[in-house]
Amino acid sequence: MLSTTLGNPGLTNERLNEYEAGLEMNFFKDRLTFEGSYFSRKSTNGIIPGALISNATGYTGTTINSAEIENQGIELLLGATPVKTNDFTWRTSANFSSIRNKVLALAPGINQLGRLIVGQPYNIFYGNRYKRTADGQVLIGANGLPVVDPTQGIVGNANPDFMMGLNNSFNYKQFTFSFFFDWKHGGDVQNDVNAYGYTYGTVKATEKRGDMVIEGISEVDNKPNTVVVNGQTYWQSRQYESTIQDGTFIKLRNISLSYDLSRAVLNRTPFKTASLSVTGRNLWIYSPHFDGADPEVSSYGTGNGVQSIYAFTTPTSRSFNVALKIGF
């Protein structure tokens, strides 16, 4: 059988133009440090593998060499040692990054390839959606259910507004206590579990399944909808758009307590250093808008079409470790 993709002998090199400006500052004998950078990247002649072409050619796609994409972002890192005495030290650091990207061009005459659309960020969500009024309210049909738009459209954006990390560590004599928070703000996730869960009534939201009136504007008389529908009917009519959720999360990524044995104790043993530590990972996830187990999971990886899809995958694992480290 023939390969389903058509080779392209005319490919040229991709080109990446990048500008970056950075600043690094240290104050008060390194008690306060700051690093910041801004970058702007533009790639041209970008290679798009598997760009869809008319199947009537006998092939599903080919590799084209005409993508243009722009990335701009800032990255900040702030470190501080607010307390430093003989017995007690507190160190803290925070990092922040925010990246904006935009698809500038795909190929002549082509404005969309799956989740890439010219003028939109990289990897948006595109599919079935509800019809809306000019000011964004959902249109409700005579049956009391939201009207499905006959044309598909953009329903979400997988790119986060910003990411932040916060690290703290406290030393008191031989004890060290540290914890690390990760925060992703914004960035939609396609929750495929809900796509089925709405139908089967297994999603938290479907607990409310009695008669209800759906908020929106009636298509019939252009007034707020008053038609009562059965909850089950409503939930089972949920479209792709309803499975797109804000993937904001805050995670307690790492928390650790350790104790270093003092030199005095170790003098009588063959060991030079010894420490005992207890560590917990992913002990707490806060995701206010996402009702699956873990918005950070991308079930199908990070490829062009599959980023940020949550589909029946186990969440990142939670773990506890007890460790004894000895050095000779």
Binding site: M1, L2, T4, N55, A56, T57, G58, Y59, T60
Partner: peptide
């Protein structure tokens, strides 16, 4: 279906 008709079946039948 368009893919199976044209790419999988018809193109290979042509060959």
């Amino acid at each position: 279906d368009w893919t199976t008709f044209y790419v999988t079946v018809l193109n290979n039948l042509k060959i």
